[in-house]
């Protein structure tokens, strides 16, 4: 087993590590960067809990090896709205009850933030069907998705005006 030197930037913090190639990005973010907002729900790419952004794009950190991310910019839920959770989508999750136990929540947020931004940029409020398709790779066991769909609708609607 060869350790591989890897430089990662996570939420603005850059570190160069000697990483065993098999280490999942999720584990390295959690253990080496002490960031707890990446949750592992299934470790086989089927629940979306571990979604992070790599160079701005959502990706499952349980299907990514840290060594693949040399030089890449990684963002986790902590980067969205700080510990006050002030991002527009975080606030909407709160007001629309889009979370209960919170375990899947970072994954949903990281999946849906770009989706919200794209729709706001386009100035369109997507259909509920479209919103549900956008989150189809994320499983929530608590909310029944109702509050999450409402939160996405609200976050987009509030920003483009004429909302709900």
């Amino acid at each position: 087993m060869t350790m591989t030197e890897t430089t990662l930037t996570v939420n603005g913090q850059t570190r160069t590590l000697d990483v065993e190639p098999r280490r999942l990005l999720a584990d390295v973010i959690r253990q080496e960067f002490d960031i707890a907002g990446v949750h592992i729900g299934c470790a086989h790419g089927a629940c979306g809990c571990c979604t992070v952004h790599i160079d701005g794009t959502p990706r499952l950190s349980c299907l990514t090896f840290a060594v693949q991310c040399d030089g890449r910019d990684i963002k986790t839920v902590e980067s969205l709205g700080g510990f006050d959770a002030t991002h527009v989508l975080q606030l909407a999750f709160k007001s629309e009850h889009g979370l209960q136990c919170g375990y899947c929540t970072p994954g949903f947020l990281m999946t849906l933030v770009p989706y919200v931004e794209e729709n706001v940029a386009r100035g369109t409020l997507p259909s509920d069907e479209d919103i549900r398709e956008a989150m189809s790779g994320n499983i929530c066991r608590c909310t029944g998705y109702h509050g999450i769909v409402a939160a996405v609708r609200k976050a987009i609607g509030d920003q483009i005006g004429g909302g709900q």
Partner: peptide, 21 residues
């Protein structure tokens, strides 16, 4: 009333069992 625990859960500040290190 909006939930007080949400801020922690939404921001990544929650600590679940695997976060006990």
């Amino acid at each position: 009333v909006q939930r007080f625990e949400d801020t922690r859960l939404l921001s990544g500040a929650a600590r679940y069992i695997d976060d006990i290190r």
